[in-house]
Structures are given as structure tokens and as C-alpha cells.
Amino acid sequence: MRLNPWVGLAAMATLAFLYLPMLAVAVLSFNKTRYGLQWTGFTWDWYVRLLNNPDILEAARNTFVLAALSTLVATLLGTLFALALGRYPWPRKSQGLLENLLYLPVVTPDIIFAVALVVAFGAFRTVSSLFEPGLFTMILGHITFQIAFVALTVRSRLKSLGHDLDEAARDLYASYGYYLRRVLLPLLMPGIVAGAMLAFTLSLDDFVISFFTAGPTSQTLPLLIYASVRRGVAPEIHALSTLIFLVTVLLVLASERLTRRG
């Protein structure tokens, strides 16, 4: 089909509109001057300083610990949830209720999600000091929204599998454990991996829920950027943002390749 040239032009302009700000930040991250926006020459300095800044390294470590631990738990719980939903003959009504429970964390606005967690942790704190705001509460919070995304991804894989291979395995006298290990899990693996990747990325990307549940010692990269932007921008933050942006680009391109091939 032939495309009106104005449509193409509008599309290009819109894409430019999406990328312009990141481009400006990337350019400034190589700028020599600390103050102001005048271009005074090229430097790698800010990147070097970034890697020597203990606060930023600490935040990077927290971000990854948070994402890794929460993804681990959420992948396990989400996969079990998907199996329970997809492979058991629940009565229609309970199935409907469970479906709603599955979609609830996906459709709840971030801020209300965060407020609910604050209230929950506030109540739990009266029982145990474990629930003081910090990395632990952040991990619990992230798991809460990740479970649903993992379960949705795994379930759609489960739906596409059908009955045949399960029935074949059991007809050939596979025990339940053997069937789980050698038939069901390998078949589900692509879905589980995709779900875990989604959960991991969502955790890295999250700001609002981290912001509400974080404590004084559990700074993550998005929180750190937010805090320093409020204090006034430093070139290290340009460099940090540029790095994070580049990682995002690589991840998106890699996952595009994976999903189109698989």
C-alpha cells in the first residue's frame, strides 16, 4: 500500500520527539564543563567518576539485588499460580474470581498499589521490626506486582501446549515427578524464562513502588536519579542515565531477536 508522504513525515517527527531529550542528555554527558550547558569539549571524565562514586555503585548493587531476588520468588509463585489456574478443573465461579485476582495487580494504578503496600507494612510493623522500610519491604512489594505478570506469561504458554504430550507421558507410565521434570517443565521453560525476564525488567524500571517502600539505606538507581534531579543536575547523572539508556536499548533489541526467532 502506498503511504502519503505527510504521514511518513509526521511519523518521523514523532519519533524525533520521543528521542530528542535522551539525545540531549547523552551529548551533555560528554561535555567538559560542570555548570551550564555550553559545549566546552569532549571528555570521558563523568563516566570515570561514575564508576568511582560509592553511592552510585551502592545504588546499582541494590537495584540488582532487588530485581534478582524479587524475580526469583515471583517466578516461582507466578508459575505455580499459572499451573493451578490452567491445569485444574475449578468451578466456573472460582475460576472467574481467580482470573480477577490475576488481573488486579496489572490494572491497579502504581500509586494506589504503593499506598496499599505502605498501609500493609505499617500494620505488619506493629508485629515485627522486619517491616521497617528498606530493601526487604521493597523486595516484598516488587514480588506483589511481578507475580501477576509471570503468571500471565506462563499461562499463555500453558494454553498453547494442549493435552497431548501430558497424556502421552502418562500413558507410557511416567510417574508424576518424572512427568514434571522431563515433560511439563521443559515445555513450559520458554514461558517461564519470558515471564522472569519481564519481571526483572519491571523491577529495574519501577520507581513509584520503590519510592514509597524504600528506607534510608536502600537507594536504587531510579531513586538516586530522582533525588539528585531534585537537588540540581550533575553531569555524573547524565552519564548514568546514558548508560542505563544504552542497556535498555541492548535489552530491547536482544529480546526482539529472541521472540522473533523463538
Partner: peptide, 23 residues
């Protein structure tokens, strides 16, 4: 082309917002 739309979608919102602040 689609990836070009997905990349900003996955870029951290705080970073994108602060980039506009700069611009």
C-alpha cells in the same frame, strides 16, 4: 521500527522525565 517505539517504553520514566527537564 517497532523497536524504536519499544525502547522509550522501557526506558526508566524518571530518566526520560529528567531528560525533558534538561531540554
Amino acid at each position: 521500527w517497532l523497536a524504536l517505539v519499544i525502547i522509550p517504553f522501557w526506558t526508566n520514566l524518571v530518566i526520560r522525565t529528567y531528560a525533558w527537564q534538561m531540554l
